[in-house]
Amino acid sequence: MAHIIVVGNEKGGAGKSTVSMHIATALARLGHRVQTLDLDLRQRSLGRYLDNRKAHLAEIGLELPSPLHTELPNIDKETLNPNENANDRRLSEAVARLEDNCDFILIDCPGSHTRLAQVAHSLADTLVTPLNDSFIDFDLLGRIDADGDKVLGPSVYSEMVWSARQIRAQAGLKPIDWVVLRNRLGAQQMVNKMKIERALDKLSKRIGFRVAPGFSERVVFRELFPRGLTLLDLRDVGVKQLNISNVAARQELRDLLKALKLPNVEVTF
């Protein structure tokens, strides 16, 4: 059965879709069969990213390893059981159709609390939570004192993950491997940055997640989206000499894939 990766965070702007696209495409380039689902039914950032990729590669006549994207199926409401949620059925049917025919299913969640996102978290074998380096984002994970030095307790998103863990435990499934990415990092070593690092370390021991490096803030990510490309595609589309920023970003992606410790994945790029 496929290993399910869920990329989730109940706050927009943390880079979820960029992280999702790079993980999914990197796995495809490493020879794995990857399917993606986008649960942001309104904005569809990941879905649009993959649409852009398909259109751009067709335009330039190039084939590159890519994940396959699946839309949630439509459901006849008359087939629902009493009190069954239609979106629950849509997600469960999509996963059931995919899980025997691929190695990984990557699910990109919206930047808000929705029923679909809640259910998806309970399906996660690996949960990836990108987090901007700010206490505004940290507040979704844990409450902190006014000085930013003492963690007072878990917050709303952590409590939702805890509920998902309980659901999996009751179903006899293996625990979620929860990985929090410090994403969109600035280059400077600021006092605030060090405080967040200490706070994450304390909270990780308290509620059970691993901290991994994400991506630094780079202009290249904004340039890749319209063409549906990732860092690993640049040489294939004619970039002969990568600049220092692109080389560093590829190393960050390599470090991220290694940190996730996904089954049967050997990072060779």
Rank of each mutant, 00 (worst) to 15 (best):
N52V: 06
L257I: 13
L173R: 15
S66G: 11
N101H: 04
D40K: 00
P73F: 11
L181E: 09
R254I: 14
T126C: 08
Q170E: 14
I23K: 11
D108M: 01
D103M: 07
I196C: 02
R97F: 09
P110D: 14
A124K: 12
T25L: 00
K150L: 09
L127S: 06
E84L: 06
A199L: 05
E217P: 02
E266T: 15
V191F: 15
G214S: 07
D100A: 10
S245T: 10
G238H: 00
I167H: 05
S20D: 05
R53P: 06
G153R: 05
A120Q: 08
V237S: 00
H121F: 12
M1H: 04
S45Q: 12
S204V: 00
N9H: 13
E197F: 12
F221A: 11
I60M: 07
L30A: 13
T25P: 00
L39M: 08
E93D: 08
N83L: 04
S112P: 07
E252P: 08
V220E: 04
A146L: 10
A212L: 08
E10V: 09
L46E: 01
I75R: 03
G153T: 02
A146V: 11
W178Y: 10
F209I: 06
A169T: 15
D233M: 10
N9P: 01
